[in-house]
Simulated assay, not measured.
Amino acid sequence: MRMRPTAQSAGQQLEGEQQAAELRAELDELLRASRYASQRERRLNEAIRATPGRQRPEGELLRQLAQARTLREGLGIRCRQLSDQLEALEMRLRHVQQEPRQQDPEQQDLGQQEPRHQEPLRPGPRRPEPRQQHGRAEPAPPPPPARPDIGALTERITTLHRSGARTEATELIDQAAARLAPADTALLVGMLARYGPTGASLRLARGTARSAPEHAVAVLAELRELGLAEEAAELFHAFWSYPAASVPGLLSALERAGQNADGATLLWEWGSAPTAELTSLAACLQQHDRPGDVRTLLRQAAGRPTADLAALSTELPPALATALLRELAALRPPVEIVRLAAALDSAGSRELYGQLLAALLADEARHRTTLAALRAAGLPTTPPAAPRSRWGRR
């Protein structure tokens, strides 16, 4: 007995709707499991943050946190795959519904029908199906990369170190610092701190400073989240060795991560850097349009010895030298301002001396004592007159 095309379409429709219902039920279960995994990850993070003082978190908590993160990410990937599969199936069902109920009588015989592009849906292993766009099938997305086994990696590093292959263990740590995601890096730091060789966790934390600033700052945040204060401090101290050209990018990354206090601390450290390096950083910050950081840096530099300040004033670009002298006039006591003015005067830096004097005269009432000290030292307290043109003496 031959089946009419309408009956075959109805069978496909019924079978497809049953499969769609099964997919929806499975997707609901996975979404509930994903929510539970997220809640468990949050509770484990809270338990780790509750570790008193500077004690390291328990290794079991770190293992459970790594498992919870892996489970949550795996469930999220599977949910997206099922959602894509369900969307493709529903599109096919709508296409079947829109087909005409009756066909030409000459094509009633199934043996003479042209093969359909739409094949019947059959239950089978559920895999992500390609999406249909503009009549063309897009390939399914590639599977996500496998998450690293942090426990196995910890054991591998420890075994190499104990067997005397310390160079190989160090290379493995350096590779992990360069390749692992921030969350995995922080977990490995915690596991090495608990079970690994002495100093391995600090080396891994320090090594991440060699990566891009965004990545290094993300690792810093993860280490603090896990309560790994010593390793976080090690990574932050490694930021001090960044060259001046890289500091603006690092400050931007810290700013985006909400770590503004870390940026201020870095600038405080740079305030005592050698004159050439400090000058280079000030110029870089000005180039990257970070006037707030420039002012913070110059305020920190204002506490340097008088001889350093005189040299720094002569090496800075003119605009930055003027800003520094203004900060000095506002922050330093009269006796030190007199020493600085004498150093500039003896070095023949008449322009810089004039700028320092202009900063003092801008608020003469406030700087009355400093101006009196300059006069007592035999230093001029009136700005040098600008040279007049011979055409102006007519």
Rank of each mutant, 00 (worst) to 15 (best):
T6G: 02
L14K: 06
Q18K: 06
Q19H: 08
R24A: 14
A33C: 02
A37G: 11
R42V: 08
G59M: 03
L65P: 01
A66D: 07
A66G: 08
A68K: 02
R80F: 12
E87W: 09
R92Q: 15
L93S: 03
H95V: 10
D104K: 06
E106M: 09
D109Q: 14
Q113I: 06
H117V: 04
H117M: 05
L121Q: 06
E129K: 12
Q132F: 11
P145M: 13
A146R: 15
P148L: 11
G151C: 02
L153R: 15
A165K: 09
A181D: 13
P182K: 14
P182T: 11
A186L: 09
V189P: 05
L192F: 10
L204C: 08
L228A: 02
A245I: 06
P248Y: 01
L250G: 00
A257T: 12
N260F: 06
A261P: 10
L278R: 01
L285H: 02
H288Q: 05
D289L: 01
R290L: 13
P291T: 05
G292V: 13
G292A: 15
R304L: 08
P317E: 05
P334D: 14
G348F: 14
S349Y: 12
L352D: 05
D363L: 02
H367I: 02
T369V: 14
T370R: 01
A372R: 12
A373N: 04
G378W: 04
T382N: 07
S389I: 03
W391H: 10
